[in-house]
Simulated scan of single mutants.
Amino acid sequence: MTHDTRLALADDWLAAQRAAMETCLETLVNIDSNSYDKAGTDAVADAIAGWCEADGIAFERTPRENAGDILEARLPAATDGAGGHVLLMGHRDTVFPRGTVAERGYTRQGDLAYGPGVADMKAGLVLNLFVLRALKRAGGLPFAVHALFTADEEIGSLDGTAFIRAAAEGARAVFNAEPGRISGNVVTARKGGAAFRLEVSGRAAHSGVSHQDGASAIEALARKIVKLHALTDYASGVTTNVGVIEGGVSRNTVAPAASAQLDTRFVDNAQREALFQAIAAIVAEEEVPGTRATLTQTSGFLPLEPEMSAALFARYQVQAARLGFAVEGEFTGGCSDAGTTASLGVPTLCGTGPVGAKMHTDEEYCRLETCVPRAQAVAATILDLAAEVER
């Protein structure tokens, strides 16, 4: 089958799928699936697995005891020897607690669909599923296409990262279906980020009777916070933020313990290494005699650096123009799993899902009219990669 024939088959089939895509989207949105809700994220996996099975798409489900199961669907290569599969990625979890669907489930107003996680990223899950279905109908490709559906991205992919790394090993390209920007653009660069918990121990004492016998963990923490915030450099894109602090026993007790939660953001991996070293040095310093601090990293995303998306984006942009919509690449300070695959050296494009906005809020929405063309653009870009292999 020629490239043009495959392309026409994928384009034409997807062009007729808007209603079907919306039906799937409504089903997924109406399942509560907070990151800590294993039953909910597994119910989303059940739905996706059911659709794959109905369409003859093979999948593997890896049970997880303390997190949502890992689901990976696969289209095999038509021939041996090409290697280098393409990976589609998406996360099933949302930030919204169980019970949100009962309060405000899926609704639609004109072209806009509303509901918890409708854009971030239930719509992206649907897009990836339909890209797989379209490629299956377009005929065998010289390489395999996999779709990975994880369940804990909103809390840092603590369980999912190992599976993402394994799924991306040997891949020729990754498309991460986070929501397209409100501008209609895709994401070609993202900051990395890491979260830390800082705990300081001191020595309690009565603040009036024996103040001198105490060692204030709160004072030590406060001094460290000032130094941590001083690491922020807007010009280079590095930011640090202590967003939560706790500590102390009472007003008239020298605090024996205090803790803080630190968020960090950085543009590239070199900044990450330098920032982590600077934070470690601040934590190690004894700010107040008799106090001691420890640091624990609680989550982390690597950055998506622009050079890792440039060639793949150029292909995508050509296909988008052919389909009739203009798209540019965009940088965002938010993190995603795209940084993990990009940092492995795999060309990665993010924000390839349908266009959405107001993520993580009650007003989150998805523009339904973008579902089909953006699915067509991803499928066409994969077919373009296939045509290059076959030449």
Rank of each mutant, 00 (worst) to 15 (best):
128 N>S: 12
122 K>S: 10
183 S>Q: 09
161 T>F: 07
177 A>P: 01
111 D>C: 06
148 L>A: 03
155 I>H: 00
118 V>N: 04
120 D>R: 01
121 M>G: 05
76 P>Q: 07
70 I>N: 06
131 V>C: 14
155 I>W: 07
54 A>D: 12
66 N>Q: 14
62 T>L: 10
126 V>Y: 03
110 G>N: 11
132 L>R: 00
126 V>W: 00
112 L>G: 06
152 D>R: 05
182 I>H: 02
127 L>H: 08
155 I>N: 05
65 E>G: 15
164 I>Q: 06
89 M>H: 06
56 G>Y: 04
101 V>C: 10
184 G>T: 15
135 L>N: 00
120 D>V: 04
120 D>M: 14
63 P>H: 12
101 V>P: 02
131 V>K: 01
168 A>Q: 09
137 R>M: 00
152 D>H: 09
69 D>A: 08
172 R>M: 13
133 R>W: 01
95 V>L: 12
68 G>F: 03
113 A>P: 08
167 A>L: 02
122 K>N: 02
104 R>F: 04
107 T>Y: 10
139 G>C: 11
93 D>N: 06
56 G>T: 07
91 H>F: 10
84 G>D: 15
58 A>P: 04
135 L>I: 03
121 M>T: 05
163 F>W: 03
70 I>Y: 01
184 G>M: 11
89 M>F: 03
73 A>F: 06
85 H>C: 12
156 G>C: 10
64 R>W: 01
70 I>F: 07
133 R>K: 15
89 M>E: 06
60 E>T: 15
176 N>V: 15
117 G>M: 12
152 D>Q: 08
121 M>I: 09
60 E>N: 12
70 I>V: 14
57 I>P: 02
174 V>W: 04
144 A>Q: 06
70 I>E: 04
118 V>M: 09
109 Q>E: 07
59 F>E: 06
60 E>C: 09
75 L>W: 00
155 I>L: 08
111 D>S: 13
177 A>S: 12
176 N>D: 05
125 L>F: 00
138 A>Y: 00
93 D>G: 09
97 P>C: 07
158 L>A: 15
95 V>F: 03
127 L>E: 05
162 A>E: 13
70 I>P: 00
184 G>K: 05
